[in-house]
């Protein structure tokens, strides 16, 4: 029988209700997720991107059994996240990261021993596994130091060590490199890649576009509780108008010039924005032409024109999608 998808959700919603005030209470209702349909295959790194408040952490917590959905269904590794929790929890790991979430007064090794016992890691394997994960995250030398003496980066590594201690098939990583220095962030990304080589599926949320672009096989962009797009990085580039981008900048472009740019064959989108005293037009191109020379020829009367070509980045894709959803 074929393996079930790592994650499969159908029309998943989550509504938060809260009350303010004591005598005269005011009820507020927030729709954090609005009908999420998502399938993630096993053995890959899946990236979930979205602005603050888009619902990324809510979705991560539902999938990792820390939150119940309001409606819809979610299956992780074939198990229902609401009714088959006892089967699912031993098979998944969750790394929420940050300064909290660890017992600071005791050392890293004891933190891991505690969780190894709660996860039922066999006694005979426990110490070996603890040594192995500490080594893997680069904390072997600091294993017997109290966690309160750890830097932010070391705590993050310990979070990850705890997440992989019991050998999960699927690991949820909620912004794993946030707040880390570049070296620690790079080491963390290297570790994530090595986990995938071992067959672990990764569900990653991040604000860093380059990180998602570098690591993820598929990416979903979540905005206002909905999946705005879900594809490979290349597919997402096509979705927003092509993988070539030419940016032009000057003290102004008239409507006829912008219309002429939009009419060029191969141009899928032209977006303008004020940039100080100048105007910047971003042109998305899905073909070999127009080239920068073609554009320069079209705007030959602009003596102060600045022009550059680059590959459409995931950040471009993300900003386009978020902007479209906002509009």
């Amino acid at each position: 029988m074929a393996d079930p998808p790592a994650i499969e959700t159908q029309r998943l919603t989550r509504v938060f209700e809260s009350r303010k005030g004591f005598l005269f209470t005011e009820k507020t209702r927030t729709e954090a997720l609005r009908g999420i349909d998502l399938t993630v295959e096993q053995g890959a790194i899946f990236g979930l991107l979205g602005p603050n408040g888009a619902g990324k952490t809510t979705l991560t917590k539902i999938l990792s059994t820390l939150l119940l959905p309001t409606s819809g269904s979610a299956h992780v590794l074939g198990y229902d996240v609401t009714t088959q929790v006892e089967h699912l929890r031993p098979r998944i790991g969750l790394v929420l990261g940050g300064e909290r979430g660890l017992y600071n007064r005791i050392n890293a090794r004891e933190n891991l021993r505690y969780f190894a016992d709660l996860y039922g890691v066999p006694r005979g394997e426990r110490e070996h596994r603890i040594d192995a994960v500490l080594d893997r995250v680069g904390l072997s030398d600091a294993a017997d130091r109290r966690v309160e003496e750890y830097s932010r980066g070391m705590k993050q590594k310990l979070h990850i060590a705890r997440g992989i201690l019991h050998g999960p098939e699927l690991l949820f990583l909620d912004e794993p490199t946030i707040g880390l220095d570049p070296k620690s962030a790079r080491e963390t990304r290297k570790l994530i890649r090595s986990l995938v080589s071992d067959g672990v599926t990764i569900f990653l949320t991040t604000h860093y576009m380059f990180e998602a672009e570098e690591l993820c096989h598929r990416i979903a962009v979540l905005t206002k509780g909905r999946i705005a797009a879900h594809d490979t990085v290349a597919g997402l580039r096509q979705l927003v108008g092509g993988d070539r981008t030419i940016e032009i900048e000057d003290y102004g472009f008239d409507d006829d010039e912008l219309a002429a740019l939009r009419a060029l064959s191969g141009v899928s989108k032209v977006v303008t924005e004020e940039f100080g005293a100048r105007i910047r037009a971003t042109i998305r191109i899905h073909a070999q032409r127009p080239t920068t020379e073609d554009i320069r020829a079209l705007l030959s009367n602009h003596a102060t024109l600045a022009l550059r070509e680059r590959r459409t980045s995931l950040e471009d894709v993300y900003l386009d999608l978020v902007e479209e959803e906002a509009n």
């Binding site: 098979r91 017992y103 016992d117 709660l118 066999p122 109290r146 071992d198």
Partner: peptide, 28 residues
């Protein structure tokens, strides 16, 4: 990496782990 197949928590071990954590924190 080993998968958790066959791993199983037990009431006794979890309770002992919790006691152990309390003692460690008490001492620390």
């Amino acid at each position: 990496m080993a998968t958790p197949q066959g791993y199983g928590w037990s009431r006794g071990r979890s309770t002992l782990a919790s006691i152990r954590l309390c003692v460690l924190q008490f001492v620390a």
